[in-house]
Design a binder for these strands. Sequence first.
DNA 1: CTGTTAGCGCCTTCAA
DNA 2: TTGAAGGCGCTAACAG
Lengths: 344, 344
Amino acid sequence: MERATLKDIAAKAKVSITAVSRALNGYDDIGEETRNRIIEIARELNYQPNFAARSLVTQRSGVMGLFVLGRVKGEGFSHPFSGQIITGILDELTSRGYDLMVFSATRPPGEGEPSYLDLCRRRSVEGAFFMGLRLDDPWLPLLKSSPFPIAVLDMALMGRNTHSIGIDNVAGAYDAVRHLADLGHTRIGFINGYGEAMVSHERLQGYKAALLDRSLDYDPSLVALGDFTSEGAERALRELVQRSSDITAVFCASDLMATGAMKAASDMGLAVPRDLSIVGFDDIDLASVTSPPLTTVSQPRYELGETAGRVLADACSRLQPPSRVLLKATLVVRGTTCPPLQKR
Amino acid sequence: MERATLKDIAAKAKVSITAVSRALNGYDDIGEETRNRIIEIARELNYQPNFAARSLVTQRSGVMGLFVLGRVKGEGFSHPFSGQIITGILDELTSRGYDLMVFSATRPPGEGEPSYLDLCRRRSVEGAFFMGLRLDDPWLPLLKSSPFPIAVLDMALMGRNTHSIGIDNVAGAYDAVRHLADLGHTRIGFINGYGEAMVSHERLQGYKAALLDRSLDYDPSLVALGDFTSEGAERALRELVQRSSDITAVFCASDLMATGAMKAASDMGLAVPRDLSIVGFDDIDLASVTSPPLTTVSQPRYELGETAGRVLADACSRLQPPSRVLLKATLVVRGTTCPPLQKR
DNA sequence: CTGTTAGCGCCTTCAA
DNA sequence: TTGAAGGCGCTAACAG
């Protein structure tokens, strides 16, 4: 059985195509009885509207685009968060009648290649989400002047049609470091990701703010880069301990790096948290099953997606000025932090 | 600037719309010189074809659907694999000129709700992927008689248009258990997921096969259910050890459960692997950062997605008979397995 | 080689 | 309350 169209229904109901269209779209300028008959037949034929045809005339596709970017092929999606964020986006969009189209965007920066926006235009996307966008992305300038609304996650982007949704990295890092300071730590290390990432910048800011707030000096030699990998963090921790043997706590800019730090600590004969307190960032699944379980900063991932969905859908239905939303991250104290030895 | 159409280009090039269409689609029945002029103008205007309009006439949307199902809201996407699998799918599809539309499918089993297939038809999807499909899904019978090609991951589904892509769970579990047996273990426990999951069934099969192959008795009291959670596995391990104090090794049907087992073992004063060898399944990121790092069975996740993409795209372009592809999982020996105490 | 015609499935005037 | 006509942007015959 071929797919039923308005025409088929019209024929069977002995009315015009127009009448069917009106009945099915809930207009009230149609006879009670005819409408019911039409609806009944539509159900019989298992009619589903052809969205492509509809969007052609209404100029609204009901589709949002999603770009999951990454430095290397496949990095973006593999990120442990993207799943929950996407779920949040999807749920919110679905409840508003939108569908979601995912685009691959690890293509080479070839010249003839269509830009992100071009990909969207082909598919008549009404708005688009960007995850993992980086400051050095070649298409960044283009996005700023996008003709349709854009929601950027985890990064602030200024443009006339752009909306940024992120978590408050500064406050999150601040809470983590203050927690350590309040436990009595005075030599607190920081293993950051890599410089080009916006989040690295912001978390460093929070780190500094907490130190300042607790009257501790900011010592650059207590900061190292772990490249957001477990191995990188292992190296970084060794370096930190070598440089400052009086270090008693480390804040890591990601949970994955925190696990690396835990491993390195154990290899160096340092007991966690007895000899070294560790705080992570992200609260990935892994965090609660390490031993001891990791104290970390938890991101509201699902809500992040949900919020992004709401913001973008709003921006698409009625004109909205550019916005920036920050969600709060919360410290989850588990087993990798305790007062330093000398304070006990 | 509004979006340019063929009409705009035609006007500017002083040719018919048809000529433009032909030039841009690479037909050769068009003058060399006119073609170049048209292409040049298209570039100037930054023309992007309207796929909706095109698909209306060609009857080919160039879109595949993806359903990520889960028991609870958002479960599917959060699964640590889905990311890499989706990346594989996306890369393969993109290279073949397809786009991917993701559908939310945690809707209540309400009656008036459109089925998975209905959602696809609305969007003129040419084929669809299903991840996390369960045997008790109410739409399962419908899928078997789908009018368009369907690729089911991690589950075998028989239907005239269905293709199953999965990993060889039986062989993977077999390898894991044989590895333990070859180390000298004779009392090997098995912490499985839950009964309704197809994978649980298959991994149990592999477990039994390996025992048989090494002339070890299958003892049901050595098998427990961990519900695929870390906590569930903790309980399960306690139970197993309580029931059989001579147990020296445990195979877990997932890495997450393996971490739970490791935790429980450590709580009970059992050193891993000295007193208890543990093998997981999945090779999630976490597996390589536990201490000791987890011996586990690695799934080729990216290739799984890639293969699914290839199979479905093939099925869409030319008629293909239903197929079933099994990818090989490989044992990765790390630090949680060693010969049992009495053998040393 | 190029243009004309027709129509994909749907919605939206405008008349009746 | 209903129907006829037109067109969204594009491709696929068929003529010239």
